[in-house]
Amino acid sequence: MWKDKLEKIKTEFEKDFGFIFNNPASDNEISKLEINFFKKFKVKLPSQYLEFLKYINGIEFDGFIIFSIDKDMLDNDINQQVKGIIDFNEILYENEFNKDYIFLADRDISWYVYNIKDKNFNILDKPSGEVMETYNDFYSILDSVLEEYIENNL
């Protein structure tokens, strides 16, 4: 399960580097994000992504970033400054092709997205934009990334 894997990584980072990950987003912050995202992009964020934010408001480690709630919607400061999901999608939506997706996470050579039309989750190759992998849910992508990190680093 992704939560167990994330806890293992958090424990190691705190022990080895004294690094503290972000706290969960509040219900008020989630609500502000949902409203503002829908106003800007006319699409709802995937529920599993929102649930993830209730566990940890964005994360960045080993070149992998899951976007947080944008700074202007936060009620409190966060420990780790992570790219905001609205700001990031705004930049990528300048390209018409990218409007088929909600960009949820970023990695060195990949984007992790929600495919709006197909209602599934994809890993896209950054240079080409081609779909490399498809998942039915956000948690499966998250679990895969965390497992890869644990296998290679812990």
Rank of each mutant, 00 (worst) to 15 (best):
F21P: 06
F21R: 04
P24Y: 08
S26G: 05
S26K: 03
N28W: 01
S31C: 07
S31M: 08
L33G: 02
E34N: 07
K40A: 05
F41K: 00
K44M: 07
L45Q: 08
L45V: 05
L45G: 06
P46T: 06
S47M: 14
Q48D: 14
Q48W: 02
Y49W: 08
Y49C: 06
L50Q: 07
K54P: 05
K54T: 06
K54M: 09
Y55H: 11
I56N: 09
N57S: 08
G58H: 06
K71H: 09
D72W: 12
L74Q: 09
L74A: 00
L74S: 00
N76V: 06
N79D: 10
Q81I: 15
G84W: 01
D87V: 08
E90I: 07
E90D: 13
I91R: 13
Y93G: 02
Y93T: 00
Y93I: 02
N95L: 07
F97L: 02
N98G: 07
K99C: 02
K99V: 02
Y101P: 06
R107Y: 12
R107H: 12
R107V: 02
W111D: 14
V113H: 03
N115R: 11
K119E: 13
N120L: 06
N122Y: 08
L124P: 05
K126M: 06
P127G: 04
V131E: 03
M132N: 13
E133K: 14
E133N: 10
T134M: 04
T134G: 06
D137Q: 10
F138V: 04
F138Q: 01
S140Q: 12
L142R: 08
L146M: 06
E148Q: 11
